[in-house]
């Protein structure tokens, strides 16, 4: 599900990067993190808690809370706030625990 992002549209820069968030193209500033891309895309939540199934979303953006776990280029359980976007990066919600 998508909502209006709680952040304003980012300033346009010449070297912006296009990534895929939940299958849809999103333009984000160069240097953005994958978690920032998910926030800009306006995902209502970015993962489901593996314990309760509750929706969760990035909280600290500094690598401490692990709320921003995402599936990035098919690799599950990545700390989205610590991964810098690359053109074409595929970012998806993390549904519960990763499969081993």
């Amino acid at each position: 599900m998508r909502i209006d992002s709680m952040f304003l549209k980012p300033p346009e820069t010449a070297d912006a990067v296009t990534v895929e968030v939940e299958g849809r193209p999103v333009v984000v500033p160069r240097g953005a993190s994958a978690a920032a891309a998910a926030l800009i895309a306006g995902l209502a939540s970015t993962r489901a808690s593996p314990v309760t199934g509750e929706p969760r979303a990035p909280y600290c953006m500094m690598g401490a809370c692990f709320e921003c776990l995402l599936v990035i280029d098919d690799e599950p359980s990545q700390q989205g706030c610590l991964v810098t976007v690359r053109p074409g990066m595929r970012i998806r919600r993390q549904e519960g625990a990763r499969e081993l």
Binding site: M6, F7, L8, V28, L39, R56, P58, Y59, C60, M61
Partner: peptide
């Protein structure tokens, strides 16, 4: 505080410093 849309001030500041993102007026 676990609801999506609840973040820290520091988190919002990281987004502002690093890529110029500003919170919406409803935040």
């Amino acid at each position: 505080w676990t609801l999506p849309g609840v973040m820290t001030v520091g988190a919002a500041q990281v987004l502002h410093k690093s890529i110029g993102l500003l919170p919406s007026p409803g935040v």
